[in-house]
Simulated assay, not measured.
Amino acid sequence: MSVHSDPVRTLTDAESWERLRGQELGRLVTHIGDTIDIFPINYAVDGDGIVFRTAPGSKLFELTANADVLFEVDDHTDVDAWSVVVRGHAAALETDADVARAEAAGLRPWIPTVKRVFIRIAPASVSGRAFHRDPEPERDGPQEY
């Protein structure tokens, strides 16, 4: 990579969704007032949304009190990395048809616990960035402008 190349590239919406579809684990950020929490969740992409399962507890309580969420997924290799952030609204799936659709998307719990509540994140925005990983540029000596 040349010293004049930008190591950061903005992903298109299609590239962002492709990366989301290629993973199963992400991080859900919730907030109520001054309290911000982050939860690792396994998920599936369902059309233009993200679905996951949960059980009663702090995550479900926080989603019920404030449906505004952030969801982030990333990955890396030795030479590349990427991150996709979904801003949206979370809501429990209400109908049997919606739950069946979520299950058909491949949504399965990773650990052997009962998680009967199905949640869908409806995106308000999706943004992604890809990064080329290289050693840090030289900091000493003359710098190019």
Score class of each variant (00 low, 15 high):
18 E>L: 08
83 S>V: 08
103 E>C: 05
138 E>Q: 14
82 W>V: 06
93 L>D: 05
10 T>G: 03
95 T>D: 06
136 E>I: 10
12 T>F: 05
17 W>V: 06
22 G>R: 06
28 L>I: 04
6 D>P: 02
122 A>S: 10
91 A>V: 02
136 E>Y: 11
22 G>Y: 01
92 A>S: 09
110 W>G: 06
3 V>K: 14
50 I>F: 10
121 I>C: 03
23 Q>A: 14
68 D>F: 06
8 V>L: 14
101 R>Q: 06
48 D>Q: 13
134 D>I: 02
61 F>D: 15
33 G>N: 10
101 R>A: 12
107 L>S: 03
44 A>T: 02
69 V>E: 00
45 V>H: 00
58 S>Y: 05
54 T>S: 03
124 A>W: 05
35 T>L: 12
84 V>Y: 01
3 V>S: 13
21 R>A: 12
78 D>V: 10
137 P>G: 11
107 L>Q: 03
117 V>K: 00
73 V>A: 09
99 V>R: 14
57 G>C: 07
141 G>V: 10
113 T>I: 12
113 T>D: 06
136 E>T: 08
81 A>S: 15
105 A>C: 07
130 A>Y: 04
25 L>N: 11
74 D>K: 07
46 D>C: 07
134 D>Y: 12
43 Y>D: 00
53 R>I: 05
19 R>T: 11
3 V>M: 15
71 F>I: 08
138 E>R: 14
97 A>E: 15
80 D>N: 14
111 I>M: 15
43 Y>C: 01
90 A>L: 05
145 Y>H: 13
72 E>A: 12
110 W>A: 10
16 S>N: 00
143 Q>T: 05
47 G>V: 05
122 A>Q: 12
117 V>L: 01
65 A>W: 11
81 A>P: 00
64 T>H: 10
64 T>M: 12
58 S>W: 10
26 G>C: 08
129 R>T: 08
145 Y>G: 08
97 A>F: 03
90 A>F: 04
133 R>L: 14
58 S>P: 07
64 T>P: 05
48 D>V: 11
7 P>L: 09
80 D>H: 11
9 R>A: 15
127 S>Q: 12
72 E>K: 12
128 G>S: 08
87 R>A: 13
134 D>Q: 11
139 R>C: 02
